[in-house]
Nucleic acid binder design. Structure first.
Length: 381
RNA sequence: GCACAGGUGGCCGAGCGGUUAAUGGCAGCAGACUGUAAAUCUGCCGCUCCUUGUGAGCUACGGAGGUUCGAAUCCUCCCCUGUGCA
């Protein structure tokens, strides 16, 4: 069971590749905008395409609650439902096991969630998560995992890791038995989705190793490193990625979930990470934080009130080609919905461009961009 | 002219004898956001000074007096606003 993944060029530990998904040939390394509830917040699908977005995320938990995965299935799957023709990956609900801390109860069998919408109780098991993800029909689906919190002691992390491995096995078993039920099965000549595994193990390299080795034995088409960016120091994130990456098969896509700042995604791509996703560019945009080649811009700031410059003078996105910082500040201060749209367009363009340039530099066999050249994430410390 | 109801910090609006520079909200200023319970959250928000603190001083609840140890809070007069009746 594999997804065609062709490595075209390497640059140090980094690599440029093509991942051949049913809905899209995805050029990697790739950044995947997050579209939790069937929408990358504030950006319509046709503009996502215009930005060059190759693949987006959807979320099992949110779409199960609303509109319901059966509705999505009857609408032809999530691609059809939201009119998104390109690549798609769904998260399993594993992150919600972490983030809905107050609203959930974990047992060996699965997780009991209280809906954040109406308080109703719902049971998620690995089988249930996969069933939902098959109905949604993304190109890639994720095993149901427990995203371990930070900090967590060794014993806690070990138990969590065991649970995730057990759930991965159950996820795979259920997927193998039902993978032909994906809504677009016939349309794509009998192709199916690809189920990716998730490495856990907290901040303990030896537990990461154990998690990775046992997961790799399951022979999945791609592997993710989960449980990061959950509050740990940045340096630790990097260390854990560095320690885990070599344990994952080099001929399959490696995905780090939930990262990062612009300089982080550049750094991780150089380390050999192929796929990343993060809510940061979209959420920060809605909150008025713009990432630019000159650093971060809190566009609400008074200093931009009469600034005639585009958000990023070196950016060629739709927004920077046309609007000033003064106007974007005005929209933000006025809480105009257009503010979220334009800010998000720019931030996504910046992230996507950053990855595109990474790919280009790798393809030419020259050293990839250094983080300092794409220092938008550099925090004012 | 008479009768009610009111006049509080940039705005709205609590407080109605004492830890009140004065609850809240808005506006303003700044910060945070990493597999989205996030168009959210946090801090500051009268002035001045400093050894930046449960710090010091000053100025404040329409105006002027008064009662009281003490008043945004009680009394008197005046000014202004709204509503009703003439």
């Amino acid at each position: 069971m594999s997804v065609p993944f062709h490595i075209l060029a390497t640059a140090g530990a980094g690599r440029r590749a093509v991942m051949d998904l049913p809905h899209r040939q995805v050029q990697t390394p790739v950044f995947m905008p997050v579209g939790t509830a069937g929408s990358v917040k504030a950006v319509p699908q046709h503009l996502l395409e215009a930005l060059g977005t190759q693949i987006i995320l959807g979320n099992t938990y949110h779409l199960y609650l609303r509109p319901g995965h059966e509705v999505v299935r009857r609408m032809g799957g999530l691609h059809r439902f939201m009119s998104w023709p390109r690549g798609m990956l769904t998260d399993s609900g594993g992150f919600q096991v972490f983030s809905l801390n107050e609203l959930r109860k974990v047992s060996a069998d699965g997780v009991e969630f209280r809906s954040h919408l109406d308080g109703s109780t719902h049971q998620f098991t690995p089988e249930r998560s996969i069933e939902i993800q098959i109905a949604l029909g993304a190109d890639i689906l994720m095993v149901f995992d427990e995203c371990t919190e930070y900090p967590a002691d060794r014993g806690r992390v070990r138990r969590s890791l065991e649970l995730t491995l057990e759930w991965a096995a159950r996820s795979k078993r259920y997927f193998e038995a039902h993978k032909h039920e994906v809504p677009w099965h016939k349309e794509f000549g009998g192709r199916t989705q690809s189920l990716f595994g998730i490495v856990q193990g907290g901040m303990y390299p030896e537990l990461r190793r154990e998690s990775a080795e046992r997961l790799v034995e399951m022979d999945l088409p791609g592997y993710a490193i989960g449980g990061l960016s959950v509050g740990e120091p940045r340096e630790l994130t990097r260390e854990i990625i560095a320690a885990t990456l070599p344990l994952l098969p080099a001929d399959k896509p490696r995905y780090v979930m939930g990262v990062g700042y612009p300089d982080e995604i550049v750094e991780y791509a150089k380390m050999g990470v192929d796929m990343m996703d993060c809510v940061l560019p979209t959420r920060a945009a809605r909150h008025g934080l713009l990432f630019t080649s000159e650093g971060r811009l809190n566009i609400k700031n008074k200093q931009f009130a009469e600034d005639q410059e585009p958000p990023d003078p070196y950016c060629r996105c739709l927004v920077c080609a046309r609007y000033t910082r003064a106007y974007l500040r005005h929209l933000m201060v006025s809480a105009e919905p257009l503010s979220a749209v334009l800010n998000t367009l720019h931030n996504l363009a910046f992230y996507l461009d950053t990855m595109a340039r990474m790919r280009e530099s790798m393809g030419r066999g020259i050293p990839p961009l250094s983080p300092t050249m794409v220092n938008a994430g550099a925090r004012a410390e």
